[in-house]
Design a protein around this nucleic acid. Structure first.
Length: 199
DNA sequence: TGGACGATCCCCT
DNA sequence: GGGGATCGTCCAT
């Protein structure tokens, strides 16, 4: 499968968001490859009160204001990291938050990274692995040092996958924000058990 | 220099 | 379904 080219990320943010569904996020980790299919995303745009870039460029949001195709990782709630794909030609401060993914390869390692032990109650541990933005960062061992990673490099990248029919793509308000809730900029794969919540 | 707040998660009820 | 954990970032003193 082909690594997505820079041009993929330079397109309009909402388009990139929708097209990321069904693509594969790959992480080179200690000589292995961790692979997950993207099943839920949110778009954050310029002039969007919910976006970190809304109040202008700061040290924290510097990567967001760069060229598309780089990873913007931020720290929140004193304990969690979330990963975004920067979009556009640069200077706009737009990105797509990866909210949930479906494990494909490296489940054992991801499980270890998430701290889900062998004796853990089995119930829904598989779903619990990556059904949220901070969970997938933990499973992929993506932290502060992942901020600014070039997605055309070999550490973290995205490869082509299924082209999903429109009928399989759900749309809703974004989760966990106060301003901009009226915008329907969350996209997800209908029926996937890894989608972070019903809506 | 301090305080309010957050694109979340987990555990408890 | 609700609240506590926990700390970096940003803006106001």
């Amino acid at each position: 499968m082909q690594k997505l080219p820079r041009s993929f990320y330079l397109r309009p943010t909402l388009q990139v968001a929708k097209d990321l569904l069904g693509k594969y996020l790959v992480r080179a980790y200690r000589g292995r490859k961790l692979i997950c299919k993207i099943v839920e995303v949110e778009a954050y745009r310029k002039d969007d009160p919910a976006s970190h870039s809304f109040h202008g460029k700061t040290k924290r949001t510097e990567v967001m204001f760069g060229e598309g195709g780089y990873l913007y990782v931020y720290f929140t709630y004193g304990m969690h990291f979330c990963a975004n794909v920067v979009t556009g030609r640069g200077g706009r401060g737009e990105a797509v938050l990866i909210r949930a993914v479906e494990p494909v390869e490296g489940v054992k390692v991801m499980r270890k990274n998430r701290g889900i032990g062998a004796t853990e109650k089995m119930g829904d541990w598989e779903k619990n692995l990556t059904n949220g933005p901070a969970k997938l960062c933990q499973a992929f061992a993506i932290g502060r040092e992942g901020n600014g990673t070039d997605l055309l490099g070999d550490e973290i990248f995205i490869v082509d996958g299924d082209k999903l029919p429109t009928s399989m793509i759900g749309r809703s308000s974004r989760i966990g924000i106060r301003n901009g809730v009226e915008k329907q900029w969350r996209f997800f794969v209908k029926g996937s058990k890894w989608v972070s919540r019903k809506s």
